[in-house]
Design a protein around this nucleic acid. Structure first.
Length: 425
DNA sequence: ATAGATGATTATTA
DNA sequence: TAATAATCATCTAT
């Protein structure tokens, strides 16, 4: 190689890479060393033969090729050509190198890892599960949902891995194939190891775009899965009859203060087979919706009110205060701040004072129930008939609490608009 | 297919 | 921090 490059150093004007015109070669052989003379002559001859080979017929060319292959100068020339090619190819390709897609690839990788798709196989660890727990703040029911989710996720992971394996296999197969081919050809063609390496890199690059597509679509699949399974809103199930029963019972029997304590919530949750936060949600929704359109809840209210009222009276009749109601004290023994501006409240106001009796909270419950009963049976039928009126335990501000001013007790027939002022939605 | 019901989430408020 | 109000996304009945 050393000699060879020295040998050709004089003949090769830099950049005249592949096709040095033979005559120039000869012309260039001006002041050669004594021993180089015949060598150069020889080289020029060979090059001329090579150049001419394409003009010959196939058979002729084949024969000539074989002859050249056996030429004593062949190895030297060959390595020189390799050298030259290496340099020119490098100067052409060396400029543009990889990188741009790396950021994206990193993101995808990170996500797949975070989702537990590309990570270590084991299940039960905290990727998606942890996200689910934190995102909603609701440690709720569905272990079924989660196992379903996990099943689908592992399905995705399985597909991902098998595809990845296929991809890797194909990649290495193709790479070795190309490498073998190149190595084989390197005997007849100037192909340097470096070039082979570069080729391998190119192949890997192409394959990695395929890999990225795989990762991309896997990510999408995971995202879709997440949104379908872990966003609880999408997987909403109505509560059981039992649950709504329990909740409504409490709500309507504590209508004047439908804010269950933490213990009460726990009790309700237990009874209804739902979680405490679901109870909280339910009460939040119920309060706001009841307030917004009380007329709509009339019937329901009456049902539950009557029901609990009956229960309550039974209890009282039997000898009071035994009761250990599942939901003790809502607003507790103190004042309820029942909100005025209600129709039947004048009458009931006095009853409210029983509150402080030893029976305590239980009475309040009965009170609330009685409100409805009285309401329904009494002289307010006509008013109640108007959906806008209904039972009003809410003050003009729409508040269940405070509501200090007993102002409009006297004008239940007042403007209907004042209560449901917000109307439509 | 659609409207209304309903459970959950989010942003705001006190 | 918990309640409210608005909104979302689904469920259910029609």
């Amino acid at each position: 190689m050393e000699e060879a490059s020295r040998l050709l150093a004089g003949l090769q004007p830099p950049g005249a890479a592949g096709d040095p015109p033979p005559h120039r070669l000869q012309a260039a052989s001006g002041p050669p060393q004594p021993q180089a003379g015949p060598g150069l002559q020889d080289t020029g001859d060979i090059l001329q033969q090579i150049m001419a080979i394409t003009d010959q017929s196939l058979d002729e060319a084949q024969a000539r090729k074989h002859a050249l292959n056996c030429h004593r100068m062949k190895p030297a020339l060959f390595s020189v050509l390799c050298d030259i090619k290496e340099k020119t190819v490098l100067s052409i390709r060396g400029i543009q190198e990889e990188d741009p897609p790396d950021a994206q690839l990193m993101r995808l990788d990170n996500m797949l890892l975070a989702e537990g798709v590309s990570g270590p196989e084991k299940r039960g660890r905290g990727g998606p599960a942890a996200i689910a727990a934190t995102s909603g703040g609701c440690p709720n029911d569905n272990s079924i949902e989660h196992s379903d989710y996990r099943a689908k996720l592992s399905q995705i992971r399985q597909i991902y891995h098998s595809e990845l394996e296929k991809y890797e296999q194909a990649c290495s197969e193709f790479t070795t194939h190309v490498m073998n081919l190149l190595r084989e050809q390197s005997r007849t063609r100037p192909i340097s190891p470096k070039e082979i390496e570069r080729m391998v890199n190119i192949i890997h690059g192409k394959f990695s775009t395929i890999q990225m597509q795989l990762k991309q679509s896997t990510c999408e699949a995971v995202m879709i899965l997440r949104s379908r399974f872990l966003d609880a809103r999408r997987k909403r199930r109505n509560f059981s009859k039992q649950a709504t029963e329990v909740l409504n019972e409490y709500f309507y029997s504590h209508l004047s203060n439908p804010y269950p304590s933490e213990e009460a919530k726990e009790e309700l949750a237990k009874k209804g087979g739902i979680t405490v936060s679901q109870v909280s949600n339910w009460f939040g929704n119920k309060r706001i919706r009841y307030k917004k359109n009380m007329g709509k809840f009339q019937e329901e209210a009456n049902i539950y009110a009557a029901k609990t009222a009956v229960d309550a009276t039974n209890v009282v009749a039997q000898g009071n205060q035994t009761s250990s109601p599942p939901t003790p004290n809502s607003g507790s023994s103190g004042s309820f701040k029942m909100t005025n501006s209600g129709d039947s409240f004048i009458n009931l106001q006095s009853l409210t004072s029983y509150q402080n009796s030893p029976v305590g909270a239980n009475v309040q419950s009965q009170m609330d129930s009685l409100h409805h009963v009285i309401h329904q049976a009494g002289r307010y039928d006509s008013i109640v008939g108007n959906p806008l009126y209904s039972t009003q335990r809410i003050d003009a501000n729409g508040s269940w609490q405070d509501a200090t001013t007993p102002t409009s007790i006297t004008s239940p027939t007042g403007d209907p608009g004042s209560i449901n002022s917000d109307a439509s939605n």
